[in-house]
Design a protein around this nucleic acid. Structure first.
Lengths: 208, 208
DNA sequence: CTATTACGCTACGACCCGTAGCGAAACCAC
DNA sequence: GTGGTTTCGCTACGGGTCGTAGCGTAATAG
């Protein structure tokens, strides 16, 4: 019934994979040099060495393109295992802060989130490719801490989800606000103080 | 040396005060209906019943205009005196969340902050008219708590400033992230849980 | 009155958007 | 090889917004 390549290969000329990576890299480059507002799709196409029409065949517009370009920055985000909850938090927060310190992340992230306020599809895209991956780290970190006995095990899964959401908003919100609004570096000293505050709140939530 | 009106009145036709308020109101209206990206200065001028040139005589561009329009939303932000630190925090955070729930705040605030990443003058404008006023509430709230004996008095003023900055980033960041990124309401239940986390961290910072 | 400044209006070049149309190139099945 | 199919690069276009210049008029001070 089927030949060697059942479904994956559709007929016709395949899309250039190198073009994708070139476009996303060009987008980040333009974000650094021009910022969000002065970034144009025509300019990105020129930088990537592709035609403007090729860009529009793959992305609906500036919003979606920048989301994908910024999302790749968060690929390097992983949860270290440093033995204690405090050390794990410090490690992952510091990673997050390092990524946010890059100009392409600063220029792009806030802008697409602002756009997502009035674009539900864009919000979902951001959630899938950026936010949810970060939230997983919170859940995983809490699970490790519970396995170590640093935090009591969760009883109500619904309550656990609410707590994870709260922690995530606090962590991500604080780092983003520090970096993008206060415009000061989230360096080791700041992360250490922040972790200290968070840690007490974490344990207190579990032992009301 | 001076007549009746020394400095304030310059020669010539004075600027219309009603035009200012009409323009800022029209800006907020356009933010609600169109959002940041589709808001044009020509449209705002039409809504306000003024000429487009009048707009450009008073504001350098879209960024500065929206900052002023959004800043007025935060005029109603005041620190209540509910007797305890926990109650004060819950009160002011709930006020902040209520303002951020308004569509004109959502659409405008994130966008101008994103623009301020690459515009130092705009960042200063935001700081003066929006951020610093919020930070004052943190400082004032801590002073009250210290007067009540809920928090130990500060010794090092530099350390006190760092702590206030940290608390501010945590509070503002968490509420903003909850409202604009997670896109879920910062209602009384959430604010209560958040306050619980924050309060423990606050006291722990003071008693290391 | 004159001088000065703000206002409304019109018009303009410049830029970017997003799309259509075309021929050429790269893959598939036969 | 020969079709069929899809992508690619390129050009060109109408439409929209920008920010400014120019002009005549309106409002205030001296």
């Amino acid at each position: 019934m089927q030949s060697s390549t059942p479904v994956p290969r559709a007929a016709g000329r395949p899309r250039s994979a190198t073009a994708d990576t070139a476009i996303l890299a060009a987008t980040r480059e333009a974000l650094v040099e021009l910022g969000w507002s002065k970034l144009t799709l025509g300019d990105v196409a020129t930088r990537a060495g592709v035609a403007k029409t090729t860009l529009y065949r793959r992305w609906a517009g500036k919003n979606e393109l920048v989301v994908d370009a910024v999302a790749e920055l968060f690929d390097e985000l992983h949860l270290p295992d440093r033995g204690t909850l405090a050390a794990d938090i410090e490690g992952v927060v510091l990673q997050f802060a390092t990524i946010l310190a890059r100009p392409e992340a600063k220029s792009g992230l806030m802008a697409v989130v602002a756009e997502s306020i009035r674009d539900d599809a864009l919000r979902d895209r951001i959630r899938e490719s950026i936010v949810d991956r970060q939230k997983c780290l919170v859940v995983e970190g809490r699970a490790r801490a519970q396995a170590r006995g640093e935090l009591p095990p969760e009883t109500d899964p619904e309550e656990a989800a609410r707590t994870a959401d709260l922690i995530f908003d606090v962590v991500a919100g604080a780092v983003v606000h520090r970096t993008l609004v206060s415009a000061e570096p989230a360096d080791e000293e700041w992360v250490h103080s922040f972790t200290q505050v968070l840690l007490l709140g974490l344990t207190s939530l579990s032992n009301p």
